[in-house]
Design a binder for these strands. Structure first.
Lengths: 234, 234
DNA sequence: CGCCCTATTGAATATAATCAACCGCCGTGG
DNA sequence: CCACGGCGGTTGATTATATTCAATAGGGCG
């Protein structure tokens, strides 16, 4: 890898079509940003600016920190890829981009105000937000799969479903699973037998009651602690 | 779960802002599509249409099939979520959406022609494509994490990096890793010790040579077979 | 009522995690 | 220039966890 050859002008840049039209891009200066090895381009919790980043040289890792866990690497980014696509419409970053070597990025303006002002129909900007949110969802799924223990993954799935039901105005503690054990197993990256055993374990710990497809979360807080790798019983 | 309450008109639909403006949405009829339990809304390999789907009732699983492997569930989708966000700009679908119960979706037009015709500056539609591609990347990462064996995950990472280098015009068989063993381990969802051991195994099998940060892929085809769960030696 | 499919349970095995020790490169400073 | 110290990486032994293979149980549907 090392660094990719620096092209000082934008003419041959593969991102040029995206950049063109954003304010200062046509005059190459000023929009580049250097990020030294082990420095962050942005960190989880940082306020989100109005730009996405295209990598000109170097490389980055994307880290996401589950609460109370050490950060997990959810991806790597190389030229000519982008950073920040997952935060459109967000107030703060949900993950960190750390340079693996001395790197350089271009800042590409994302016209947030145009969306805020609603001067255009929602459709196209709304789609941006939607796509960005979908990326974050996939990233959370990746984080889920980083949990070694099947118990944690199952707890995470149950809490995710719970939150989605809650968001729709349905009970967050009691609902019906639409999927089979095999589907759950495949999603969680374990065998169906393991799913069965984990259900028994969670029931024994009085965290949930799950029979056939009907589930009742008896202790969501404890499930969350399990996901976070903390002691289940406080 | 079961089915969410059917709202026959779009007025109270949370997707209404996205739909408004697309051709036939304002007259509710005709754009709904029913999908029976275990039927597919779309299948991997199907040609992509000009629409994304919003789930009105029911639920879906998203399945992705690695070549020569049985399909893996990479996600679940419930109302009021969307399907098809990962295929903007694609010719064929990369995964299948299978209804877990009798379901109903709205078809929302994605104005592909507007992008094709370039009547608008690329910036905004280009961003759509970019975001959609990013979703697909995350989905591939999810698929990677479904491989039980650390050997397979490592092989997958090496091949991914190889392809990215290839796409940039660099050698696809010989390159330098920008990340540490710990970063690789975190990304792969295993311990650094396990990464070390896997490297030894892959070297013993003459699949690659990896010392410090310099890697040479000695047998990419065999690595691919390993990822696919086939016998490494044909 | 009985079949079939899904789910569960059990026992043996394989794989990765863990804990601990060691290595070797690299940069620092004498 | 060499000695030292530190960190990233490797190796080893043990343990925990999930897989595998096999057998059984339970519901739904004809």
């Amino acid at each position: 890898m090392s660094t990719f050859p620096e092209r000082s002008r934008c003419e041959r840049c593969p991102h040029q079509p995206l950049c063109r039209g954003t304010a200062a891009v046509d005059q190459t200066a000023g929009l580049r940003r250097r990020v030294g090895r082990h420095e962050s381009l942005f960190r989880a919790g940082d306020p989100v600016g109005n730009q996405i980043y295209s990598i000109r040289s170097g490389s980055f890792k994307l880290e996401m920190a589950a609460p109370h866990c050490k950060p997990q690497v959810i991806g790597f980014a190389l030229p000519p890829e982008f950073l920040g696509l997952n935060m459109l419409g967000m107030a703060v970053h949900s993950c960190s981009a750390v340079a693996l070597e001395d790197s350089e990025v271009c800042c590409i303006e994302w016209d947030r105000q145009r969306f805020r002002g609603r001067r255009q129909p929602l459709q196209r900007d709304g789609l941006h937000l939607l796509l960005s949110a979908e990326i974050r969802r996939e990233q959370r799924a990746i984080l889920m799969l980083h949990h070694t223990h099947a118990e944690q993954r199952m707890a995470e799935l149950m809490l995710t479903l719970s939150r989605r039901h809650d968001a729709n105005g349905y009970s967050s503690t009691q609902f019906r699973l639409p999927m089979s054990r095999c589907d759950m197993a495949s999603y969680l990256g374990v065998t169906p037998e393991c799913v069965s055993r984990v259900i028994v374990q969670l029931r024994r710990q009085a965290l949930l009651d799950l029979r056939r497809r009907d589930v009742t979360l008896l202790d969501p807080a404890a499930l969350q602690r399990m996901v976070d790798g903390q002691p289940v019983r406080p």
